[in-house]
């Protein structure tokens, strides 16, 4: 039994060391990706779909959908800045440049 636990502990340590070495989109791309991962992915998912459990529960929009993609840059920027519905406002945390780059990132999400 003790051997099994030590093996489990070793496997866990290995996983913890290996996962950080996995390809990170945040490292490979720009600040917008980092900002998206830190602020948007919690509801809208990493791929913009909003299909993770938190997004489903809060009925987060699918950012790839025609419904969102047809909204103008200015309006998307406005939603990020001021918030809308259950979405909180990020205007006091994110700079105008970061919000602008995030709008561009939303435009680049794979279309649905």
């Amino acid at each position: 039994m003790q051997r099994i636990f030590w093996r489990l502990a070793l496997a866990g340590t290995f996983i913890c060391l290996v996962i950080p070495a996995l390809p990170s989109r945040a490292q490979a791309q720009n600040d917008a990706v980092k900002a998206y991962a830190a602020n948007c992915a919690i509801c809208h998912s990493a791929n913009g779909s909003g299909d993770a459990s938190a997004g489903k529960a809060l009925k987060a929009k699918d950012l790839r959908s025609p419904e969102v993609q047809k909204i103008s840059d200015a309006d998307i920027s406005d939603v990020i800045t001021k918030g809308k519905g259950q979405m909180p406002a990020f205007g006091s945390k994110l700079s105008a440049d970061t919000i602008k780059s995030m709008v561009a990132y939303v435009r680049k999400l794979p279309k649905k």
Binding site: I19, P20, P23, S24, A26, K34, A38, A41, I42
Partner: peptide
């Protein structure tokens, strides 16, 4: 929360 494993998001 920025990593991917087997093409799926992974938070560790």
């Amino acid at each position: 929360n920025s990593r991917h494993l087997f093409g799926k998001p992974v938070t560790y």
